[in-house]
């Protein structure tokens, strides 16, 4: 997926003009690598639109929890109910718009928490001696032994349902992969000359971590975490779908799918609406991650 490997193939592909004859200068390579892709622009605009709708939308639509049973299961495009109504006569558009905030927050907060904790753990492990490094990384290996979703389910089931508990559970399963990326990137820097210089000039461990390591490990971590947001939104809605997230009657996308699946055979579009919202948000963050990778010129990290 990386632009770097695209160029590598371009140099050997038999159909392309023989670029190998006249090697590209560093400047042209850099220009070709660091580009703002259309995918980046479109996904950034999509995310901005989603955020705007979740922030302002709730003031523009009706109360998501009010519905009359005489108006239940109205089809799409009904007067006053653009997306119809659900089994309790509640406006689907209103629930979709109001459901945006818990759905996005339940996806975003775990990534925010795990990016901070994971980076701290990974950088600390990368900079410390064999013993501490081993202790941190082997502990993280234990979490890798779990199928991630199942661990999240076990933790949030033990803590009890609720949005804060599902956030904690997701943060726990996202910390190890972030920490591993941070550790790999830190190890890459450790023998470089400028690190040697920093150590020689008497900089302490914390100062090296913050001033020398952090600026250099940040770009790959930002790229990785952006793509993690898409995954986290899907997982968070999944936990609600299973009954571990927000509790009814709160409007939330995963809970909407779980609510509407009883009408699957008669009104499949009802299920499709929140599903589409989750898919669009998740694709948007994944494309944004790809675009950021091209923009920041980061080597590819496979999302696991």
């Amino acid at each position: 997926m990386t632009a770097v490997s695209d160029i590598a193939l371009g140099a050997t592909s038999s159909t392309d003009p023989p670029t190998g004859v006249r090697p590209a200068t560093d400047a042209t390579v850099a220009r070709r690598r660091r580009r703002v892709t259309w995918g980046f622009r479109i996904s950034a605009a999509t995310i901005a639109a989603i955020v705007l709708v979740t922030l302002i939308g709730p003031f523009l639509v009706s109360d998501p929890n009010v519905g009359s049973l005489s108006e239940r299961l109205l089809p799409l495009g009904s007067a006053g109910h653009l997306l119809g109504t659900d089994g309790q006569g509640r406006d689907v558009l209103s629930r979709l718009v109001n459901g945006g905030r818990p759905s996005l927050l339940a996806g975003l907060i775990p990534v925010a928490v795990s990016s901070l904790v994971g980076t701290a753990l990974g950088v600390a492990a990368g900079l410390s001696g064999r013993l501490t490094h081993g202790a941190i990384m082997r502990t993280l290996d234990v979490f890798y032994a779990f199928p991630a979703v199942l661990l999240a389910i076990a933790i949030s089931a033990a803590l009890g349902s609720g949005i804060s508990n599902s956030i904690i559970a997701l943060a726990v399963i996202l910390i190890p992969p972030v920490a591993r990326v941070a550790e790999t990137e830190t190890r890459r820097l450790i023998d470089l000359d400028y690190m040697e210089a920093a150590r020689a000039s008497g900089a302490g461990g914390l100062s090296i971590a913050v001033r020398q390591v952090l600026p250099n490990v940040a770009p790959p971590i930002i790229v990785y975490c952006t793509a993690l947001i898409g995954l986290s939104i899907v997982y968070a809605a999944g936990l609600s779908f299973l009954g571990l997230g927000v509790s009814p009657p709160t409007a939330e996308w995963g809970l909407m799918i779980s609510d509407y699946k009883q009408f699957l055979y008669s009104f499949p579009e009802l299920t499709a609406i929140p599903a589409l919202a989750i898919l669009v948000a998740s694709v948007a963050f994944n494309v944004l991650g790809d675009g950021l990778r091209d923009l920041l010129d980061v080597r590819g990290e496979t999302l696991t």
């Binding site: 899907v234 999944g238 799918i257 055979y265 299920t271 499709a272 599903a275 898919l279 994944n286 494309v287």
Partner: peptide, 22 residues
């Protein structure tokens, strides 16, 4: 590839049930 990595399985499964099974 891009869309499929972002797919929520619980909803895709439901839609497959509707259109291919039912």
């Amino acid at each position: 590839a891009l869309v499929s990595i972002s797919v929520p399985q619980y909803s895709v499964g439901l839609l497959l049930i509707i259109y291919l099974a039912d």
